[in-house]
Simulated scan of single mutants.
Amino acid sequence: MSQSEQNKKRPFACVVGDPIAHSLSPLLHQTWLRALGIDAEYRRLHVSSADFEKEILAFFENKNFVGMNVTLPHKKAALEVADMVSEEAKSAGAANSLVQKGDQIYAHNTDIEGFIAPLLAQRPEGFWRGKQIVIIGGGGAAQAAIIGALKLNPQQIVLSNRTNEKAAKLEKRYENKVQALLWQERHDALPHADLIINASAGGMTGKSPLSLSLEGLNKGALVYDLIYTPLQTPLLAEAKVRGHDGLNGLDMLIAQARPSFEAFFGHKAPTGIGIKRVLEQALEKRP
């Protein structure tokens, strides 16, 4: 059998988005596949919003297709093509994973699990109970952060966004579980905060830095920036200077990929192979 014929019979998964060239998911999953000796493939595919439903349904007609990850701008559209939706995807109003269960398409959201895992690795289980969490942002990432943060049983979640109306809308959606703080008052929450989460695009490569000073932040607070380009955002750089522990978005990326990998390929993703350093090196090579 020729190599091309073998490739046609290989199980494969993919990530779809628009744009998609920047995605680290293929490197991440292919590294895990090689480490486990699994003869399968994980691809990166550009799919426009106009073609999303048609393209996705076509994939599920392929008997070698095992599932897909979905990134921006398709996470809400992924719910609409699904026959079954997990509770996590329902609560987030978005899905980042599609697999086939029987003759039905099942949508799930692993972003919430991915968000929580790095926090539990940093602090003992139960540490966040009764603590105060501050989230900056108002989009899909902020929503996943809210859902994840609620699972940690904090005393309070404070949300602030440059567009006050977005924060107010999320406060209403989550009733009394989230307190919206006017953007001009965002620094008032820092002295009592145990965890600061940047779920906005502020500080991302090509974007303006997040307009948030950590002066006055609670001494033992952890700073969690969901961005990973760059690896050290201005926010994390300031946190380091001020003596705070920090996490970047690479930890979340890896953690949210683990349940998808198992769902696609039937094996748990390996540990202890230095996957974070592999991704860091790939990012360092980018212009």
Rank of each mutant, 00 (worst) to 15 (best):
residue 9 K to T: 00
residue 181 L to W: 00
residue 198 N to H: 09
residue 225 D to W: 11
residue 171 E to Y: 15
residue 183 W to H: 05
residue 283 L to N: 08
residue 234 P to L: 14
residue 175 E to P: 09
residue 32 W to N: 05
residue 146 I to F: 01
residue 279 L to E: 07
residue 274 G to Q: 07
residue 171 E to C: 15
residue 112 I to W: 07
residue 137 G to E: 06
residue 89 A to F: 10
residue 177 K to W: 09
residue 271 T to F: 09
residue 79 L to M: 05
residue 242 R to H: 12
residue 177 K to V: 11
residue 138 G to N: 03
residue 191 P to E: 14
residue 55 E to V: 12
residue 212 L to S: 13
residue 199 A to E: 05
residue 204 M to I: 07
residue 203 G to R: 07
residue 188 D to P: 00
residue 242 R to T: 11
residue 44 R to N: 05
residue 28 L to R: 14
residue 86 S to V: 02
residue 272 G to N: 10
residue 179 Q to D: 15
residue 285 K to D: 13
residue 79 L to A: 08
residue 20 I to S: 10
residue 105 I to G: 05
residue 218 N to P: 00
residue 204 M to N: 03
residue 40 A to F: 05
residue 142 A to L: 01
residue 24 L to D: 02
residue 226 L to V: 03
residue 227 I to G: 02
residue 75 K to S: 09
residue 116 I to S: 08
residue 221 A to T: 10
residue 148 G to I: 06
residue 47 V to T: 04
residue 99 V to T: 15
residue 22 H to E: 12
residue 250 L to R: 13
residue 222 L to S: 10
residue 93 G to R: 08
residue 33 L to E: 02
residue 198 N to C: 06
residue 207 K to A: 00
residue 113 E to R: 07
residue 56 I to R: 01
residue 263 A to P: 06
residue 244 H to I: 15
residue 27 L to H: 13
residue 131 K to Q: 09
residue 241 V to R: 14
residue 162 R to K: 11
residue 248 N to T: 07
residue 12 F to W: 12
residue 10 R to S: 11
residue 149 A to P: 08
residue 118 P to I: 11
residue 89 A to N: 11
residue 144 A to P: 05
residue 286 R to I: 04
residue 87 E to V: 10
residue 174 Y to N: 08
residue 226 L to T: 02
residue 11 P to E: 10
residue 242 R to W: 06
residue 252 M to T: 13
residue 1 M to T: 08
residue 192 H to P: 00
residue 143 Q to N: 14
residue 79 L to T: 04
residue 189 A to W: 04
residue 241 V to H: 12
residue 100 Q to M: 15
residue 19 P to C: 08
residue 104 Q to N: 12
residue 246 G to W: 00
residue 276 K to G: 00
residue 203 G to S: 06
residue 184 Q to C: 09
residue 261 F to V: 05
residue 139 G to W: 02
residue 26 P to W: 13
residue 152 L to R: 13
residue 137 G to Q: 05
residue 127 F to H: 15
residue 188 D to F: 01
residue 76 K to V: 14
residue 2 S to R: 02
residue 84 M to S: 09
residue 94 A to R: 08
residue 201 A to R: 11
residue 132 Q to K: 15
residue 81 V to G: 08
residue 166 K to P: 14
residue 172 K to R: 15
residue 95 A to Q: 03
residue 20 I to P: 07
residue 58 A to Q: 11
residue 134 V to Q: 10
residue 277 R to T: 12
residue 146 I to Q: 03
residue 237 A to G: 13
residue 67 G to W: 02
residue 211 S to Q: 15
residue 147 I to K: 08
residue 199 A to Y: 05
residue 279 L to A: 10
residue 128 W to Q: 14
residue 260 S to M: 09
residue 37 G to P: 03
residue 134 V to H: 09
residue 46 H to A: 07
